[in-house]
Design a protein around this nucleic acid. Structure first.
Length: 667
DNA sequence: CACGTCTGTCATGCT
DNA sequence: GAAGCATGACAGACG
């Protein structure tokens, strides 16, 4: 089951990302509201209240706790977190679409949710129910027992939110609170049907299968009483004049005795509960506990915690926009409401600033394959390691490998030859086997095909193969001939053997000949130490001869060692270069993916902004007048209501218990 | 002739 | 301690 969830979750996330990439708006909240705890947890983050379930273990896993560093789950963890971050980028964008859905559906009756067919299907991607069914075969609505079947989903969502996001007894609308204060939130809706905005109560999932906007609950555009200007205490830290402010504290508190429920001409106003499950939509930083860096915006009015609890206690949207830990805090809930006061203020000022700016900087428009390639090339250029084929440092490697590995190439190992030319010692000891290997390595250019940078290698790595290169009957040694062969062209035919050998012998070979060493340098070098000692014992050699032989052996072995060493060094460089290339390719690919995501996000944000403006333009106060955008802004109440908040009042009421009057959604 | 590269050699450290 | 290996450094050869 765990694996099923894992794959389902990840697949769902990927599918969502994919849809977003292809331009399909995905209301992630649709399934978020319907998702099972694990998925919800994955997307929304750990919930303190969530510990009621067994999925806290999963949460811990997702948080990386309890994962052994060597556990394979760690990989899954990072993958999940990465995908989660991507989705969070998206879901923040999707909230507005949810909001729009709410607007498009209006509900005037309190408990009956009328789905408006006016909503544009294109706005909402119905993807919840099926997923829910898949993920939760039980499909047992949480907290939906006592709810009408028609609202099962929505109520379930409410229940879920309360149950999952609100620790029992911590207020902020826990189930207990609702029981204790039935009027709060729910009762409020009943009292003020049009007002009650159970935004987010509706479930986009199965309900939407039935109806595209099934359980769209009424939206309460509550103009806080504070809107009566002063009662709405400004949120501390809220910048003056900034839209986000908050009259957040008790917004949408149905239990309030005197909520001014203004009929707002929200013609299609509703807010499906789908958005409930969204993390703070316009403030990504709310994802983090406390979001201290957002203190100026988040700081709740002091002293109204209890009220906040009562205010949001029975509401569901506390969990919508706030992480559980925040949700559990009344002040934080208020702060969240403040943050939500102006969705686009937060959106544009926060998310868009950091994400879009990044997008603009990194990749303004598009990231074509050519650009990716260019980027990759640029990335390639920043390395000290150059793969420029014009330079071929690798040339020695192959020859060295084949030759050195097979023995002292260039040294005479053929005893027969040596015997034929005893006076020449090691000189002239062409070893067919060794030379063949070297010849193969030199002649076969295919060995370098895999390494373009090795093209043009023309060095002679025969390591003393003079004779082989000189003999015309061995024309198959072009490379072995190399430079020395070229030198020898001038008269090799008529050159006396001794001069020829001297000319093509190494210094040690010449020394050996001069010292009358009776065996070849190849033997001196390559014989095992036992055989070498036996060989020395067979001959009566002077100290000078013995010293020379030992030097020859030492130098010969060291030469091979040096060749091997250089080969290894070269192989290491080649491998490192290949690794660098691979990493650059990966980096370029990841950058491309990132840019694609960012582009999609920006598009979604733009759509969201336009939808927000569209919705706001339709708002009417009780007198049928539109709200001036310069003076009012929309914000989400934690109880699911959508509030029309005066900007100035919201700012002014910070630090005080905000009062607000709720505006009934008025068709 | 200067320069870069290749190669051999030496010194040194390590096994 | 000898033998061998690995490697940095150096110098000569060479293009």
């Amino acid at each position: 089951m765990l694996y099923l969830k894992k794959y389902f979750t990840e697949g769902l996330i990927q599918f969502t990302i994919l849809l977003s990439l292809i331009g399909v708006r995905v209301d992630v909240d649709t399934y978020l509201s319907n998702q099972l705890p694990p998925l919800r947890e994955i997307i929304l983050g750990p919930s303190s209240a969530y510990t009621q379930t067994q999925f806290h273990n999963l949460r811990n896993t997702l948080d990386g706790y309890g994962i052994h560093p060597k556990s394979v789950d760690l990989d899954h963890f990072f993958t999940t977190r990465r995908l989660l971050n991507q989705v969070r980028q998206l879901d923040r964008l999707s909230v507005p679409s949810t909001e729009l859905n709410t607007w498009l559906v209006h509900r005037d009756s309190e408990t009956v949710v009328s789905a408006s067919s006016q909503s544009s299907p294109s706005i909402t991607l119905d993807n919840g129910a099926g997923l829910e069914d898949v993920d939760n075969p039980d499909a047992t609505p949480r907290g939906g027992e006592a709810q009408p079947a028609g609202q099962q989903g929505g109520q379930r969502g409410a229940g879920e939110l309360e149950e999952w996001h609100q620790p029992p007894g911590i207020g902020a609308g826990g189930r207990g609170d609702r029981r204790e204060h039935p009027g709060a939130g729910w009762s409020g809706r009943q009292r003020s049907p049009a007002l009650s905005g159970e935004l987010g109560v509706s479930e986009c999932g199965a309900d939407q299968d039935q109806n595209l906007f099934p359980d769209v609950t009424s939206v309460s555009f509550s103009v806080p009483k504070a809107m009566e200007v002063n009662s709405t205490a400004p949120l501390p830290g809220s910048a003056a004049g900034t839209p986000e402010s908050g009259a957040a504290g008790q917004f949408g508190l149905p239990a309030r005795p005197t909520p001014i429920n203004q009929d707002v001409s929200l013609h299609q106003a509703s807010l499906p509960s789908c958005s409930q499950d969204f993390p703070p939509p316009f403030n990504p930083q709310l994802d983090s506990a406390g979001a201290p860096q957002r203190a100026p915006l988040l700081r709740p009015p002091s002293g109204n915690s209890s009220n906040v609890n009562s205010t949001f206690g029975a509401t569901n949207l506390t969990g919508i926009f706030l992480p559980p830990h925040v949700n559990g805090s009344a002040s934080n809930a208020t702060a969240a409401a403040a943050v939500l006061a102006d969705p686009f203020g937060s959106l544009l000022e926060e998310a868009m600033l950091d994400e879009i700016s990044l997008l603009d900087l990194a990749m303004e428009e598009g990231f074509s394959q050519a650009q990716a390639s260019q980027l990759e090339d640029e990335l390639d250029s920043d390395s000290g390691l150059s793969l420029d084929s014009s330079r071929s440092p690798a040339s020695p490697s192959s020859s060295e490998t084949s030759c050195s590995s097979e023995g002292a190439v260039g040294y005479s190992t053929d005893s027969e030859v040596a015997a034929a030319e005893p006076e020449e010692g090691a000189v002239g000891g062409y070893q067919p086997g060794y030379s063949k290997l070297c010849r193969m390595s030199f002649q076969d250019p295919t060995q370098f095909h895999g390494l373009p940078q090795l093209d043009g290698v023309g060095h002679n790595h025969t390591y003393n193969l003079p004779l082989a290169s000189a003999f015309p009957e061995r024309p198959e040694l072009p490379l072995a001939a190399g430079k020395k062969a070229a030198r020898d062209k001038q008269g090799a035919k008529f050159q006396p053997p001794q001069d020829f050998l001297d000319k093509h012998s190494s210094r040690d070979e010449r020394r050996a000949r001069a010292m009358k060493i009776p065996f070849s340098n190849d033997k001196i070098i390559n014989l095992p130490v036992e055989e070498f000692n036996e060989l020395l014992a067979k001959h009566h050699l002077s100290e000078a001869q013995l010293a020379l032989i030992r030097d020859i052996r030492r130098r010969g072995k060291n030469k091979l060692a040096a060749q091997n060493c250089r080969k290894r060094k070269l192989d290491t460089i080649i491998n490192l270069e290949q690794g660098v290339q691979d990493l650059r390719r990966d980096k370029a690919r990841l950058l491309k993916e990132k840019m694609e995501f960012l582009r999609s996000i920006r598009q979604m944000k733009q759509k969201m902004q336009s939808l927000y403006q569209e919705v706001f333009a339709q708002l009417r106060d009780e007198e049928g007048r539109p709200y001036p955008p310069s003076q009012y802004s929309l914000q989400y109440g934690a109880d699911g209501s959508v509030l029309v908040t005066p900007r100035g009042a919201a700012a002014a009421e910070q630090g005080r218990k905000p009062e607000k009057k709720q505006k009934d959604k008025k068709k």
